[in-house]
Amino acid sequence: MKTQEELTEIVRDHFSDMGEAATLYVQVYESSLESLVGGVIFEDGRHYTFVYENEDLVYE
């Protein structure tokens, strides 16, 4: 099982292909040891929320 830090790095790496991230945040109260819930805000103003669970990243 991966730590939240490892899950955060996986998510950060995925979003790095989409541009320069200004902020990546984790909603600790919705996350667990198995999943990471949060969002990313890019330098150009785009904002996505995400759920990373079971090696699957879903974002909108």
Rank of each mutant, 00 (worst) to 15 (best):
S32V: 08
A21F: 14
V40E: 01
I41L: 06
L7E: 02
V28P: 01
T23Y: 14
A21I: 15
I10P: 02
T49K: 09
V51C: 10
V26P: 00
M18N: 03
Y52R: 01
G38D: 01
D44T: 05
Y59A: 04
S32I: 08
Y48C: 08
F15C: 11
K2F: 07
E9H: 08
G19Y: 07
Y25F: 05
F50S: 00
Y52E: 00
L7Y: 04
G38I: 13
Y25H: 04
E55R: 10
T23N: 07
Q4P: 06
E53M: 14
H47C: 13
D56S: 15
Y29T: 03
E60H: 11
I41N: 01
S35W: 11
R46M: 03
A22L: 14
S35Q: 12
V26H: 00
R46I: 04
E53I: 13
E30T: 10
V28K: 10
Y52F: 08
E55F: 11
E43R: 12
Y52K: 00
I41G: 01
L24P: 01
G38Y: 07
F15V: 02
E53Q: 13
R12T: 04
S31K: 08
E30H: 11
T49C: 14
Y59K: 01
G38C: 13
E34Q: 15
Y52L: 08
R12V: 04
G39C: 15
S35P: 02
V58C: 13
M18A: 05
F15A: 02
L24E: 01
E20H: 12
E6S: 05
G38T: 03
E55V: 06
V37G: 02
R46T: 06
E5A: 11
H47V: 08
E34G: 15
E6M: 09
D56Y: 14
S35T: 13
E55T: 06
Q4K: 10
H14C: 15
G45T: 02
N54V: 06
V40R: 01
N54T: 04
Y48L: 05
Q4Y: 12
F42W: 04
L24Y: 07
M1P: 12
S35L: 15
Y48T: 00
Y29M: 04
V26K: 00
N54R: 07
E55H: 12
Q27D: 11
E53S: 12
L33G: 09
E6K: 06
S16A: 12
E60V: 13
L57S: 02
V58H: 10
L57M: 06
S35E: 03
H14P: 02
L7P: 02
G38E: 02
